[in-house]
Amino acid sequence: MKTRKFTFTAIFIALNVILSSFIVIPVGPIKAAPIQHMINVLCAVFVGPWFGLAQALISSLLRVLFNTGSAFAFPGSMVGVLLASAFYIYRRHIFMAAVGEVIGTGIIGSLMCIPVAWIIGLHDFAAKPLMLAFLVSSIIGSVISYIILMVLKRRGILDRFLK
Rank of each mutant, 00 (worst) to 15 (best):
I39C: 07
V45A: 03
V81A: 07
F51L: 12
I35R: 00
T7A: 15
F51G: 13
V64M: 14
N40I: 00
R4N: 05
A33H: 04
R92W: 08
F95Y: 06
F72D: 01
A71D: 02
F12C: 05
A44L: 02
P29G: 03
I18F: 09
G28C: 13
V27E: 10
P75S: 10
Q55G: 06
F46R: 06
I35D: 02
L82G: 09
V81F: 01
G100V: 05
A84C: 04
I11D: 13
P75F: 00
S60D: 08
A10D: 12
Q55V: 09
A54D: 00
A98C: 00
P75Y: 00
G48Q: 03
F87A: 11
M78T: 15
S77L: 11
I39P: 01
F46N: 11
E101W: 14
A84T: 08
G52I: 13
A56T: 04
F8T: 07
F12M: 07
V41M: 06
Y90W: 14
F72L: 11
P34S: 01
I11W: 02
R91T: 13
A32D: 14
V79L: 14
N67Q: 09
L83T: 00
G106N: 04
G48Y: 11
K5M: 09
S85I: 05
H93Q: 12
P49T: 07
A32R: 12
V45S: 01
W50C: 00
A73W: 03
A98N: 00
S20V: 13
Y90Q: 11
V79G: 03
F66I: 10
T68L: 06
G80V: 11
C43P: 06
N16L: 07
R63A: 10
M38F: 12
F74T: 13
I89T: 12
S59H: 06
F51Y: 15
V45K: 02
I18L: 15
S60Y: 10
L62W: 01
F66M: 15
R63S: 09
F51D: 15
I107C: 09
T105E: 14
V47I: 07
V45H: 01
A33V: 14
I18S: 07
T3L: 12
P29K: 03
V45R: 03
L65T: 02
L57V: 13
